[in-house]
Design a binder for these strands. Structure first.
Length: 589
RNA sequence: GCGCCCGUAGCUCAGUUGGAUAGAGCAUCUGCCUUCUAAGCAGAGGGUCGUGGGUUCGAUUCCCGCCGGGCGCGCCA
């Protein structure tokens, strides 16, 4: 890509001037304002600062050594020491033509592919998937798509919650209060009802709680009846998950739930004890602070009334049961043995950040050599709030079910499409409504910075205008409409060898196309899909402006060819970009 | 109490190693469909980037204090 080539030349020039300089932070990025040029670097200012040099003098020296004449007319020194690059129009058109021939789509596959495990979605058995699950599921899926696109080897694993203390209550409920007809109608709703009934009883009556605990003990001991019921609950839940994932277009390479790791948990604890990493305390087994960091930063310490006291990561309860810390440790070990990843990414609510700090540190102490070979990364995200600023609930206080949200989105989209395009067949309208509605929901969740909480609103989540998926899909559909007509008029592809960028709207769109790869890389590096959302929104904006100002089919000769080329490449990038966000496109809408 | 996160336009939010005049959507106002899909476009108004200091060529971004809000601190996950 052009900016990469410029970066390489620039680094060489910096090394020429300052042989011992570290050039890894010397980057070439798009100019914030086209009046400065196409690309810029501000890195020379920090290089100069670190060496107490005059930044403009350094810039002058670097420019003297810099040969960018192949791509740029001139390189200007501006402001306190910016270097501005202005691309030759030839360099742009040649890049566009290469893209048209399919040699690239404005991004390069990584030169250093990594194996990356992504752990995301992770819904709980016997509970409905609710609006909150859109976050982990959507962000995780977008990340796996982008990282694959960039050439990494990705393994996705849905670590579903299929084990834990809640099954004691569920088993008790199943045995005593199961409504088989209700289970037939809506299994998840019935399981949820059972849990609520028994949970309330347990709160009011310790004897019931004890019964539930006994059911759990029997399950853990391998009781055949309880195992059979437990497996049935998982099966019923998986049916629900598959329905939702099918609608969202999300797939997993593996679905290894928490229970999968049960056989190893005892050994994990024994090993931790044997190596002196964990110790017994009050009948339980836990990992304690090793004193290697200040108390403020030590997740194994907590301050109570001005005193720093131990806050261990428990790996075995005093009743012999294991904690999710134990499961997570066994899971890391399994993943390393099975896939040898360079990195494991956990797309999980930010509120679990302390858990992951403890987990990663504990694993580092347990298996230091293995830990050096893998980057463990918690990619957190914020909450979805209601307009009262509290966690989002329906008016009656229930969580909003994900399936209901998708239904509502598709319904609203159908209303819009039937108004805008009543001539389409009902089947076409329904298909458009499906793609637009689901896309709107996914995009609305991907657009905010993942770490901030955001306020949910039906209107915003399901909006069909502004910075939304439908706006991007619409841009794509308009381009496809042009090509349906262009195809009728004959073969336009032959003319692509002769193009000439003239109108400012053409140049603006072309310049922005070049930066697709930067957006993808930023998403991969920072695990922030919103960078891609914003890039695509800007691209669609450039297209909309171009579309108003530059007639395509009415133009002739080189002008027509140029505009068709820009349309084609914009359509490809929009499609590829939306696909990387897990959002479908439509030929018409 | 201790720790972490947040505070940007009326509302909801972006803002990529600190970088050039802080952006978008919604809402408000003014124009644009006999012309490739108006789910659109062009334009206007709207800001002490919570606040007070500091660091420096340069701070929404980094550091410290304060004010306001959220979250975490369970032998749950």
């Amino acid at each position: 890509m052009l900016h990469t080539l410029l970066e390489k030349q620039l680094r060489a020039a910096v090394t020429d001037v300052l042989p011992d300089a570290d050039t890894t932070s010397v980057l070439v990025r798009p100019c914030p304002d086209p009046k400065f040029g196409d690309y810029q670097t501000n890195a020379l200012m920090s290089v100069a600062k670190a060496r107490k040099m005059n930044p403009r003098q350094l810039a002058t020296d670097v420019v003297a050594k810099l040969d960018a004449s192949q791509w740029c007319d001139k390189v200007e020194i501006a402001g306190a020491g910016f270097l501005n690059f202005r691309l030759k129009t030839d360099a742009i058109t040649q890049t566009l033509q290469a893209a048209f021939r399919g040699e690239h789509l404005f991004f390069a596959k990584t030169a250093t592919p990594r194996t990356i495990v992504i752990d995301f979605s992770s819904p709980n058995v016997a509970k409905p998937m609710h609006v909150g699950h859109i976050r982990s599921t959507g962000i995780g899926d977008a990340l796996q798509r982008v990282l694959r696109l960039l050439g990494h080897h990705v393994v996705t694993d849905n670590h579903i919650g299929d084990w834990g203390t809640q099954f004691g209550k569920l088993l008790l409920g199943w045995k005593q209060s199961l409504d088989k007809a209700a289970l037939e109608r809506d299994a998840i709703a019935e399981l949820e009802r059972l849990y609520k009934v028994i949970n309330a009883e347990c709160d009011a009556n310790p004897a019931r709680l004890e019964e539930a605990k006994q059911e759990l003990v029997k399950l853990q001991a391998g009781d055949a009846d309880n195992l059979a019921i437990w497996k049935e609950m998982i099966r019923l839940s998986q049916v629900q998950f598959d329905t939702i994932y099918g609608r969202l277009g999300v797939k997993f390479d593996h679905t290894l739930g928490e229970s999968y790791y049960n056989p190893w948990l005892g050994n994990v604890v024994n090993d931790l004890l044997q190596r002196g990493i964990a110790k017994e305390s009050e009948g339980a087994v836990g990992v304690f602070s090793d004193g290697s960091m200040p108390p403020k930063e030590d997740p194994f310490l907590v301050n109570r009334d001005g005193e720093w006291v131990a806050d261990p990561a428990l790996v075995r309860k005093s009743d012999g049961g294991f904690n999710y810390m134990t499961t997570d440790l066994a899971t890391i070990e399994y993943r390393l043995k099975t896939w040898s990843p360079n990195e494991i990414i956990y797309v999980v609510d930010d509120r679990q950040a302390p858990h992951f700090r403890k987990l990663f540190l504990t694993f580092g102490r347990w298996q230091p050599d293995a830990a050096k070979r893998v980057k463990l990364r918690h990619v957190g995200f914020g909450k979805i709030l209601g307009d009262d600023g509290k966690p989002f609930k329906t008016r009656s206080g229930d969580t909003v079910k994900l399936g209901d949200l998708l239904d509502e989105a598709v319904e609203r989209a159908l209303k819009v499409v039937s108004e805008k395009n009543p001539d389409l067949s009902e089947a076409q309208q329904r298909e458009i409504a499906r793609v637009v509605g689901i896309g709107a929901v996914k995009y609305a969740d991907l657009l905010p910075n993942r770490q901030s909480d955001y306020v949910f609103s039906w209107d915003k989540m399901l909006a069909m205008n502004g910075n939304t998926a439908p706006y991007l899909q619409y841009a794509y559909a308009r381009i496809r409409s042009i090509f349906r007509k262009a195809d009728e008029a004959g073969d336009w592809r032959a003319a692509m060898s002769s193009i000439q960028l003239n109108a400012p709207e053409e140049i603006g769109m072309a310049r922005h196309l070049l930066n697709f790869g930067l957006a993808l890389e930023a998403v991969g590096d920072e695990c922030r899909p919103n960078f891609l959302c914003n890039y695509l929104y800007e691209l669609a904006g450039y297209f909309a402006t171009f579309y108003e100002a530059c007639p395509v089919l009415k133009a002739e000769g080189t002008e027509r060819a140029t505009r068709l080329l820009l349309c084609e490449l914009t359509a490809r990038v929009l499609k590829q970009g939306l696909e990387a966000l897990g959002i479908e496109v439509l030929e018409q809408m």
